[in-house]
Design a binder for these strands. Sequence first.
DNA 1: CCCTCGCCCTGCTGGC
DNA 2: TGCCAGCAGGGCGAGG
Length: 270
Amino acid sequence: MPELPEVETTVRGLARYLDGARIARVAVNRPDLRRPFPVDLAQALTGATVTGLGRRAKYGLIHTDRARTMVFHLGMSGRWRIEPDVLEKHDHLVLETQAGHVLALNDARRFGSVDLVDTAALDAWGPFAALGPEPLGDAFTPEHLTGAFAGRLAPVKPLLLDQRIVAGLGNIYVCEALHRAGIRPDKPAGTIAAKAVARLVPAIRAVLAESIKAGGSTIRDYAQPNGELGYFAAAWRVYGREGEACACGGTVSRTVQGGRSTFACARCQK
DNA sequence: CCCTCGCCCTGCTGGC
DNA sequence: TGCCAGCAGGGCGAGG
């Protein structure tokens, strides 16, 4: 399930094949994912030159010399397959560069999306307009989080999944960051002490940075573009470890918040 | 505005 | 071996 580190890893992998490349051929193998593909997707990309790649929250950005950016979201099962030997089921969009590299966007569960957005107006694009700060950027500070939490009675964990508060966190890294910061996931956000919020910000940054360095996490159907598996999953301290021992001597528990699994240790998260 | 809940979709896993 | 329930979960809309 691609969260920020997996998207970052994907974008970096794609850049090796796409940055500066001319897109020679485009195959659109179905009309939609979560929402319809742009009707002119193939036409807009064919013959275009990629001027750069980037990421915003969990979205990947492929900028072109036609003042438009292809914005993709990997949803839960999306991945780019690089130089596939054969095309597979769910290779919904296939790009071929003039140099002959083939890149296929594969998404079995189809929770992902592909859009074309005017590059100059990216920040105002609907899904981007209300996004909170990048967790690895300068605007993500304890003061920002304290302001976002003020007066909120909702548990902190679902608030950290709210992309308007901070953009790019998903279930895995929220669980891991709260554990590192020693904060229980069901703590009402507005009641968290300033000192704990001050621990949470660097905890979020650290867990993301470490995962990016490791090439992302891997669960089931996620793989890096080059086909290798990210190995950050081995570094999870609570996620997916229900019943296992926490480093503090406690036991990792699994609960459900907002319909999603939460992993935590009641002994060291207060 | 705040908060919770359910839906979208497919494939894998575990229980019987 | 087959069948089926449960689970994974980001984003978004509905409803209280």
